[in-house]
């Protein structure tokens, strides 16, 4: 019973949504479900946010390693909730848009979250370098091709790449590194992308059907209890 009802909900909702694509009167069901999803996600946050608060309170209470940082996290979390939900420091007052420019809430985003975000993102520049050092080694045929493609594209972006093949006559311009780089992007690269994309489409069909039919149900919890 505890298992049958969720599986029925799943099968019915899934089937109706598949069919709705072909039935104009039901066409907007997809949008409705998206709305429902958004609303459910807000409720779910009580569990997620509650979990965050519980874990850090526990850490603090039991004085576990690094408990001091938990105070910072908790303070930041509740600070944002209070100024965002009660719209404290918002020039427009309680009726205004919470993310209005000049509000404390949005200022905190601009001056705390924003630099953190972009710095975290910028770490990629370093990791791209360390990953290419380690991974692009001609260990076998596959790795060699990976290396060559990356190498040509990278080289095509530096003046050296241009200089290296500048002697190639114009009628063979395809062999000049910058042009070769573009050709790789537009031909073999495109081919690989297409095969991956088509495969993904079919994989989704098969997995969705397994879910809707209830063959795949590990996420629904245990059989008993």
């Amino acid at each position: 019973m505890r298992r049958a009802i969720p599986l029925t909900i799943l099968a019915v909702v899934g089937t109706v949504l598949i069919v709705s694509v072909f039935l104009p009167p039901l066409e907007n069901l997809g949008e409705d479900f998206t709305l429902f999803f958004d609303i459910i996600a807000v409720f779910a946050f009580f569990l997620g946010g509650g979990n965050l608060v519980r874990i850090h309170f526990n850490k603090l209470w039991r004085k576990r390693k690094d408990w001091g940082f938990s105070i910072v996290t908790l303070f930041g979390f509740f600070f944002m909730l209070v100024i965002g939900l009660l719209k404290i420091g918002n020039p427009g007052g309680i009726g205004a848009d919470p993310t209005a420019e000049g509000s404390w809430f949005q200022e905190t985003f601009n001056y705390v979250i924003n630099p953190l975000q972009s710095t975290m993102y910028a770490l990629l520049a370093f990791f791209v370098a360390s990953a290419s050092y380690r991974a692009f080694r001609a260990k076998n045929r596959e790795a060699t091709l990976l290396l060559l493609a990356a190498f040509i594209i990278l080289l095509g972006r530096t003046p050296f790449g241009v200089m290296l093949t500048a002697w190639v006559p114009e009628s063979w311009s395809i062999a000049q590194i910058p042009n070769l780089a573009v050709w790789i992007m537009n031909s073999p690269n495109l081919a690989g992308q297409r095969a991956i994309i088509i495969g993904i489409g079919l994989g989704v069909v098969s997995m969705s059907l397994r879910l809707i039919l209830g063959i795949e149900r590990s996420y629904l919890g245990e059989d008993r209890g």
């Binding site: 807000v42 940082f69 979250i113 975290m120």
Partner: peptide, 25 residues
């Protein structure tokens, strides 16, 4: 780093909940 991380997690979790709450709920 731990301090920056703690600030990031706490403030951004609060930020997104508030935005989700006003937009969606």
């Amino acid at each position: 780093y731990k301090l920056s991380e703690a600030i990031f997690v706490g403030i951004s979790a609060g930020y997104w909940f508030v935005v989700l709450f006003w937009d969606n709920f």
